[in-house]
Simulated assay, not measured.
Amino acid sequence: MTGAGFQGSAWGALFVLAASVLWGTTGTAATFAPDVSPLAIGAVAMGLGGLLQAAFAARSIIAFSASLRGQWPTVALGSVAVATYPLAFYSSMHLAGVAVGTVVSIGSAPLASAVIERIMDKRRFTGRWAVGALLGLAGAALLCFAESGQGDPASATDSGWSTPAGIGLGLVAGLTYALYSWAAHRLINTGVPSRAVMGAVFGMGGLLLMPVLAVTGSPLLATWQNSLVGTYMALVPMFAGYVLFGWGLARVRASTATTISLAETVVAAILAVVVVGERLPALGWVGAALIAGSLFVLALPAPMRRKGLAEESPTEDGIPVPAAQTLA
């Protein structure tokens, strides 16, 4: 990998990591509006956040409208995934718990993303990605087990379907997260700026969420606290977070981005301890350390096996890139 290529991928990883930190606050923020349904939380967060992104990118969307229309299937796929993701994600946390819902949703995304890239783009699974993904998934699993073991027995009075349903919805969330990440990365790779891509995909996704918000969103206006929670979710983790994520996707591939976003589970667990008052046992901290290790592995530059070889076979995130593509 050239110095410029590594610098670009390092900035991309940093942008995705910053977005993940913001996303990690959403579960804790939602606890401050307990009477608001997960559907309303998801609709206001991603719906209004998506519309804000579209407004932010309006000029760029108009300038590249012909390119976006020419790739409307990819735009449509990404938009439907954007609209589905928050409904599945927040419902998963509501049914299975914040920690388990977050871990399943975010933890399953890297595998789904890699499979999508393998099928759609014929990309090979690389050794470095495999190590990073295994470390991250192992850490996420430990966090899941640690947090589930801390549950209050008095609260576990459901009929037995709540947690499995929450895990199932978490898998749907992971798949749709991987899908819109792949769609956005694919559009950006055609030469459309990340601002236009994210504005178009998330703006259309936000429009799809408006009927859900209209039906479920009245509790958001019931109290100032609920309104502040909704405003925070739309402005900070969703609008600002996905602007950063778009910048990251312009510099790293989707499977790398979704693996780095495993950091969200660590942030969510730490906030649950510090803000909500939950206890994270030693097993959970081991999981957090493994996720940090996965981020370190993914941030490392690809090694050059022999002098001069990198000039013949430069890499992008550890994957050989044809010489014709290295001029971009």
Rank of each mutant, 00 (worst) to 15 (best):
M1A: 07
T2D: 12
F6C: 01
G8W: 14
G12R: 03
A13G: 15
F15G: 05
V16S: 01
L17P: 01
A18T: 14
V21G: 12
F32M: 02
I41Y: 03
A43V: 03
L51A: 04
A55R: 00
I61L: 07
A63F: 09
F64M: 15
S67F: 00
R69G: 06
S79H: 08
V82Q: 06
Y85T: 08
L95I: 01
A99D: 13
L111H: 13
A112G: 14
V115D: 14
K122Q: 03
G136L: 10
G136V: 03
A138E: 04
E147D: 14
T157M: 11
G168Y: 06
G174R: 04
T176Q: 02
T176N: 00
L187M: 09
N189R: 15
G191N: 12
V192D: 04
S194T: 05
V197R: 03
G199N: 01
G205Q: 06
G205A: 06
M210L: 15
L213Q: 01
L213N: 03
A214T: 09
L221R: 00
Q225M: 12
A234W: 11
P237Q: 06
F239Q: 01
L244R: 12
L249T: 05
R251Y: 08
A257D: 09
V273K: 15
V274W: 09
V274T: 11
V274D: 12
V276Q: 03
R279S: 14
L280A: 02
L280I: 00
L283E: 06
V286D: 02
V297N: 12
P301S: 08
R305E: 15
R306L: 08
K307W: 13
A310L: 13
E312F: 12
E312A: 12
P314N: 00
E316K: 13
D317M: 04
Q325I: 00
